[in-house]
Amino acid sequence: MSEALHDVRLTVNGVVHEIRVPARRLLSDALRHDLGLTGTHVGCEHGVCGACTILVDGGTARACLMLAVAARGCEITTVEGLADPDGALSPVQRAFAECHGLQCGFCTPGFLTTVTAGLRRDPSPTHDRARDMIAGNLCRCTGYVNIVRAVERAASLQRDVS
Results as ranks from 00 to 15, higher is better:
Gly47Trp: 13
Ser90Lys: 12
Cys44Trp: 00
Asp132Arg: 11
Ile134Ala: 01
Thr142Val: 12
Val48Leu: 02
Arg94Asp: 12
Val115Phe: 07
Leu138Met: 05
Leu82Thr: 14
Pro91Gln: 01
Val56Leu: 10
Arg153Leu: 05
Gly101Thr: 10
Cys99Trp: 06
Thr11Gly: 08
Arg20Gln: 11
Cys64Gln: 03
Ala71Tyr: 05
His100Asn: 10
Asp132Tyr: 15
Pro85Asp: 02
Leu55Lys: 02
Glu75Met: 09
Thr77Trp: 12
Leu67Asp: 08
Val48Gly: 03
Leu27Cys: 00
Gly39Arg: 09
Gly136Arg: 07
Pro109Trp: 07
Tyr144Leu: 08
Val15Leu: 01
Ser2Asn: 04
Thr113Phe: 13
Ala154Asp: 04
Ala97Leu: 06
Arg20Val: 08
Arg120Ala: 15
Ile134Thr: 09
Leu5Asp: 04
His46Asn: 14
Met66Ile: 07
Ala117Gln: 06
Ala83Tyr: 01
Val42Met: 08
His46Leu: 14
Thr108Val: 06
Asp57Arg: 11
Leu138Thr: 08
Cys44Glu: 04
Val148Ser: 03
Gly58Met: 01
Ile19Val: 15
Cys139Gly: 04
Thr114Tyr: 10
Leu35Lys: 04
Thr40Gln: 04
Ser28Leu: 11
Ala4Glu: 08
Arg72Glu: 15
Cys74Ser: 13
Leu82Gly: 05
Ala154Pro: 05
Gly47Leu: 03
Gly81Trp: 05
Ala71Val: 05
Gly136Tyr: 04
Leu82Asp: 03
Tyr144Arg: 06
Phe96Arg: 00
Arg121Gly: 07
Ser2Glu: 15
Leu89Gln: 01
Glu75Phe: 10
Arg20His: 13
Leu5Pro: 05
Asn13Phe: 01
Val42Cys: 03
